[in-house]
């Protein structure tokens, strides 16, 4: 007996909290993948990343309502349409922001921090004006509700499984995009040496714009996934931005594999400790562990060993 639970109970708790952690992990991974592209590859500190996520969440919310009102027959599949639209909306806003603001700030990381923080405030107020300050939630079609009973004491929610599937697909997609495609070669060349990339004939401004857009688009998808675990409010993104930076820095800024490993360890630690202690204690312990590990490995978990 530990904490008054039997070992059987403890096993179930660990499994279910582990699964809850996996859903949190999915949102972290989606958020962090976008940020790993923008911060890790491009070196832009995007404080508005959470607001791009919330844009995706609001798009999902709108979709759920529009489908209920006008296309009730297709309501069962609205979530997939919402994911695509969330990506498109965040991608488009990302292109606009890059063109209007970020491209003037590439060699000035501190200025991007302030500018994008300002942008996040603007976006928050915009959401507040349009959608109201109250939290909103989405309606789920019947087949996405409920849960799968594995044993008497362990059950896993279906929408969680869906979010995890989505995350897996996006992660593989991002990996292929960056490491296997010609477009990825352009991105990596520009990020490693912008001047030299131009001197081998790559249109660096165009690459920057699309890369930033893709990073934001992935955040939009994270927003769709987010509607499964939390309710959407104008400031909900802010709660995630620090965690997301934590994930990216902890994983090693330029490594996608590191990002995934660090999202996994942070979300699992948090979710398991949360059950036994309180949410804020879980956060404190996670942060302490991360600080400790970063003191031993300042470059993060995964580093490319290469002469510079």
């Amino acid at each position: 007996m530990i904490f008054g639970y039997s070992f059987g109970d403890l096993g179930s708790i660990l499994a279910m909290q582990g699964f809850a952690g996996l859903i949190l992990f999915s949102v972290y991974v989606l958020m962090a993948l976008g940020l790993a592209v923008i911060f890790g590859q491009m070196g832009v500190i995007n404080m508005a990343h959470g607001e791009f996520m919330i844009l995706g969440a609001y798009v999902t919310y709108l979709c759920s309502h529009l489908f209920t009102a006008y296309l009730p027959g297709l309501f069962a599949i609205y979530f997939f349409v919402a994911v695509l639209l969330a990506f498109a909306a965040a991608f488009a806003l990302g292109l606009l922001v890059e063109w209007a603001m970020i491209r003037h700030l590439y060699r000035r990381p501190l200025d991007t921090l302030l500018a994008t923080w300002g942008l996040s405030l603007v976006l928050q107020q915009l959401y507040r004006s349009i959608f109201g300050a109250r939290e909103v939630g989405v309606e789920l079609p019947d087949w996405m509700m409920g849960s799968q009973h594995l044993t008497d004491t362990i059950e896993v929610p279906i929408n969680g499984l869906l979010v995890m599937g989505l995350t897996t697909i996006i992660t593989i997609g991002v990996f292929l995009l960056i490491y296997r495609s010609n477009w990825g070669k352009r991105i990596r060349a520009v990020m490693q040496n912008r001047t030299m990339a131009a001197a081998v004939g790559i249109d660096t401004e165009f690459v920057d714009r699309v890369t930033f857009g893709v990073g934001c688009g992935i955040a939009g998808v994270a927003g769709s996934a987010f509607t499964m675990i939390g309710s959407t409010s104008p400031t909900a993104g802010q709660l995630y931005i620090v965690d997301t930076f934590l994930v990216v820095v902890f994983g090693g800024a330029a490594s996608l594999l590191g990002t995934i490993a660090s999202a996994f360890s942070i979300s699992q630690t948090q979710s398991t400790i949360e059950f036994f202690l309180s949410g804020s204690m879980a956060k404190v312990l996670t942060l302490l562990a991360v600080v400790g590990i970063l003191m031993l490995r300042p470059q993060g978990l995964f580093v490319l060993k290469v002469r510079r």
């Binding site: 010609n182 070669k185 352009r186 990596r188 060349a189 490693q192 040496n193 001047t195 030299m196 990339a197 001197a199 081998v200 004939g201 790559i202 330029a254 490319l304 290469v306 002469r307 510079r308």
Partner: peptide, 26 residues
């Protein structure tokens, strides 16, 4: 017009083949 800069400036984290392939896009 092509350029081999002082200090070479290859892309350090990309493989040799990928480095050469960056020149193919034009």
């Amino acid at each position: 017009i092509a350029y081999v800069p002082q200090g070479r400036m290859i892309f350090p984290a990309m493989t040799v083949a990928e480095n050469i392939e960056t020149g193919l896009f034009v």
